[in-house]
């Protein structure tokens, strides 16, 4: 029965969404790529991906009205990488106004570390069902130049020069800085947990 869930990956022209679709398929579900408001609203689960530059991604969201739609969604929503950053108030990248779901301002890594951070890093201080069956200190795959400073909505933390929030949660909204679709078995577990989240009404 669970296989009948309707999973929509928001397709607004930003980045490598094929990999997310395939990762969902490997878990035994089908996902639809869409930018259609009705289809997104009627989904059981929504994945909001994003790779690239914040300013141009935000412009693409605005041009399709998705910037208004996403914060209004009621079902579980998972922002991935830039998707999560766009769900914050503001990003230093292109001085971009975000969707304002998470109360945080996205900053660029200082040049005391190599930028972008590329590779496998650890997640700690794990909270919520998103991390069920995931051990403290597990490794996930990250590629990013901007980060979310530690904030109230944090449900996972990573250290790269600074300690920062690698996952966020507020109401029905989740965000992960890392790429679950590229994070081997740990990523598969996290994606599976998201697809299994049921909201209490």
């Amino acid at each position: 029965m669970k296989k009948n869930k309707k999973i929509v990956i928001i397709d607004y022209g930003a980045g490598n969404i094929q990999s997310i679709k395939f990762a969902v398929q490997r878990l035994g579900y089908e996902a639809v790529l869409s930018n259609d408001a009705e289809e997104i609203k009627n989904a059981d689960k929504v994945i909001f991906p994003g790779v690239g530059e914040a300013g141009s991604a935000m412009r693409m969201l605005k041009s399709t009205g998705l910037d208004k739609l996403i914060p209004e969604l009621k079902q579980p929503v998972l922002g991935i990488c830039l998707g999560m950053q766009l769900m914050c108030n503001f990003s230093e990248e292109g001085n971009t106004q975000g969707l304002g779901i998470f109360d945080a301002d996205v900053k660029r890594f200082a040049n005391t570390v190599k930028v972008p951070q590329i590779g496998w890093n650890q997640i700690t201080n794990l909270e919520t069902h998103l991390f069920d069956s995931v051990n403290e200190g597990e490794y996930v795959y990250l590629v990013h130049s901007y980060y979310v400073p530690e904030c109230e909505d944090e449900i996972a933390r990573t250290e790269y020069g600074v300690k920062y929030s690698t996952a966020l949660h507020k109401n029905n909204f989740y965000g992960v800085q890392f790429h679950p679709e590229k994070s081997s078995k740990t990523g598969e577990q996290i994606l599976k947990n998201f697809l299994n989240i049921e909201l209490r009404s």
């Binding site: 094929q18 990999s19 395939f22 990762a23 398929q25 490997r26 795959y141 590629v143 790429h179 679709e181 590229k182 994070s183 081997s184 078995k185 990523g187 598969e188």
Partner: peptide, 11 residues
């Protein structure tokens, strides 16, 4: 690339 992406769970 499409075939690899379908199966592979690392970058």
């Amino acid at each position: 690339v499409l075939d690899v992406a379908e199966q592979l769970n690392i970058p």
